[in-house]
Design a binder for these strands. Structure first.
Length: 349
DNA sequence: AAGTCGGGGAT
DNA sequence: ATCCCAGACTT
């Protein structure tokens, strides 16, 4: 039976990870499952480890998370990307306490209604924390199913999604869904990889059509990705008393709604002159001096960003507003990699 | 159904 | 360089 060989492979092979209890059959803390699963969304296991450990140390329970400042929550997310995940964790923690007495609600539909929790994460919580027979579907399972059945499509349209989720449901029907689900993910991560899959080691090789036809690496079909290059200017304004200017706006080119450095598109090769667009944040009369610090490169989703870093020193002292950030608070206030690269370029060169 | 959202690891 | 990662949400 294919389930047996998969489970046996997993129990023998099972890697030690910070969010895994020693006992593979133990019911897990739903809060810990939730945090780890959200961190793991579109993020590799190795990247998550350190963040997960630090998070659980500082926010060991849903109550600690709900009481934390959003700035502190975002600081813990620094480097993970997709920052709405952190904001949604914070929001959902408050909802869990106010509406559900600090625990997850009973029904799947209620869990999926929480901000940042979709079908995958709800299934992971229900199966791994509560040992319910609920399916999950992530990139690993999509790849495995595509290869097992030679499905030459991704779950894009609704009918295609139904096909994949129905398959996931059949795998999770038994009483050990908690271990089947995790075994499939681990198998996809370590053996059934996108490139160079290790089919000879696979516990499912007997039933896998792609293995028998020796075409695993052709499945699933690649999704088309279009990359764009984006040129801009990122602005560092320092007040006379040494604080850095920040903005928090919804219509920024990237990292919308997050506190950050002023940023604007600037496609023309700029001269040495002062770009008028920067006057949105500082009047020319207030400028003590400015200079170009060179370029930084950064990637955000499909965009390859190339930014000139513009440093401006103001004649004025900082106002008492949330715009101005002391040097000591830079990491908290500019909790994303794009801004930290620019600040490093301007202030530490 | 398609677009958007970060950053890093692996090749 | 390119792909893709234990996806969710908005348009």
């Amino acid at each position: 039976m294919k389930l047996n060989s998969l489970v046996q492979w997993f129990l023998k092979q099972r890697a030690s990870l910070p969010w895994r209890p020693e006992d593979p059959h133990a019911k897990r803390d739903p809060y810990a499952v939730w945090i780890s699963e959200v961190m793991l969304q579109q993020t590799q296991v190795e990247t998550v480890k350190k963040h997960y450990i630090a998070w659980l140390k500082d926010f060991p329970t849903v109550y600690d998370l709900a009481q934390a400042d959003e700035e502190n929550v975002l600081l813990h997310w620094q480097g993970l990307g997709y920052y709405s995940r952190a904001k949604n964790l914070h929001k959902a923690a408050k909802i869990l306490i106010e509406k559900y007495n600090g625990d997850f609600p009973k029904n799947r539909s209620e869990i999926e209604a929480l901000p940042g929790i979709g079908k995958y994460t709800a299934g992971a919580i229900l199966s791994m924390a509560r040992h319910e027979s609920e399916p999950i579907l992530d990139g690993n399972l999509i790849r495995i199913f595509s290869r097992l059945h030679l499905w030459n499509f991704l779950p894009t349209s609704k009918p295609e999604q139904d096909i994949y989720w129905d398959e996931a449901r059949t795998w999770s029907q038994g009483k050990n869904a908690y271990i089947i689900n995790e075994a499939l993910m681990e198998m996809g991560r370590t053996l059934c990889k996108p490139q160079n899959p290790l089919c000879p080691n696979c516990p499912l090789q007997q039933e896998c059509k792609a293995t028998s036809e020796n075409c695993s690496s052709q499945y699933p079909p690649r999704k088309k990705s279009i990359q764009e290059t984006w040129h801009g200017v990122i602005v560092i304004i320092e007040s006379a008393d040494g604080k850095i200017f920040s903005v928090q706006e919804e219509d920024t080119p990237f990292l919308k709604g997050q506190r950050g450095l002023p940023l604007f598109e600037f496609s023309k090769a700029h001269g040495k002159g002062f770009p008028g667009k920067a006057e949105r944040w500082i009047t020319p009369e207030s400028i003590e001096e400015y200079h170009w610090c060179g370029a930084i490169k950064h990637a955000i989703t499909k965009y390859k960003i190339e930014c000139q870093v513009l440093y401006i020193r103001s004649k004025d002292k900082s106002k008492k507003s949330s715009h101005w950030v002391a040097r000591a608070n830079i990491k908290q206030a500019f909790a994303n990699s794009l801004n930290l690269k620019a600040l490093h370029k301007a202030l530490e060169d």
